[in-house]
Amino acid sequence: MINTKQEERNIISIEAKNLVACYDKVEALRIEALKLSGRVIAVVGHNGSGKSTLIKTALGLLGNTGSLSISRTNSWGDKTTLIPEQHMAYSPERGSVFSDITVENYIKLWCRIKQNNAKYYLGEGRKYIEQLGVQPLLSKLGRNLSKGERRRVQTAVGFISNPLLFFFDEPFDGLDVRQASYLAEIMMEASTSMGLIISSHQMNVVERLADKIIVLKDGEIHACGGVEEVSRELAEKTWCLKVGSEDIAFELCIGSKEVFSDSLIHQQNRRIYFTGNNLNKAELTSWCYEIGVGEFDLEEDSPNLTDAMGYHLMKLQN
């Protein structure tokens, strides 16, 4: 459990004004104004929405106009402007390990660059090697690693440089549920000593990890703020319909998708969740009576991030 004192530390603030980033002459990101603070900030959005572009711009890897600054406030209130090469680490989407050298030599290269000591990973940095299960991979050549293993190595390398802010681009992509959950735990623990900015499509994990969300749409900010706030902005309400049995719930779920085509509907045990902006209790109740649902219970709920984002993406698709 993270205590309050720890929560007060590592507050990362992002401020952007009239920020425009382009690939060649194609505009990929346009942010008029952004001001957001948090420990773990998630950047979400559809494919091509500008998530990776925002991360690359923050790391100084893309030419841009306007301003973007990231700072960190510690528990004593001291504010430090973060500089990519000094304070930041980056784990790219595909992970990066040289194909023709061993993982050990790759880690040594990073230890030399970031810690001036090739053996750092055997001393202070050892905990990250162990935590991420990199030890058995040390003698393997980069080309023999799976996607998940590459990801783990690159994450370990990022932690070894002791950053104040760690960028993860699609960190859970290519990981199975167990590995994703384990990585999320490690990230959660790391967030006590460093800020994290994560771009991901895995809303269930993002919801667990992040305290602030930036939703991008076509290179522009669609919503940003706390998780609940953003979820409400994306989808006003979620209605939970509880029926007598799982079978009834299953049939109702399939039938409802035609009637409420502009809502996101999914079933969980005896419950059916309706997420959308144009739903109201009267409409749902009359539909239940209409199709002859016997006993049911209808409750209004706050939409979670997974449902809200699902609804947002569904609307984009339509």
């Binding site: 690359k56 100084g60 090469e85 980056y90 790219p92 992970g95 990066s96 660059i113 970031k114 690159q154």
Partner: peptide
Amino acid sequence: QYFSKNDALLPLVASCGKKS
């Protein structure tokens, strides 16, 4: 090409600084 082929260009440039 060696660095980009191994997808290491971006993390290296980010960590080392583009000028360096």
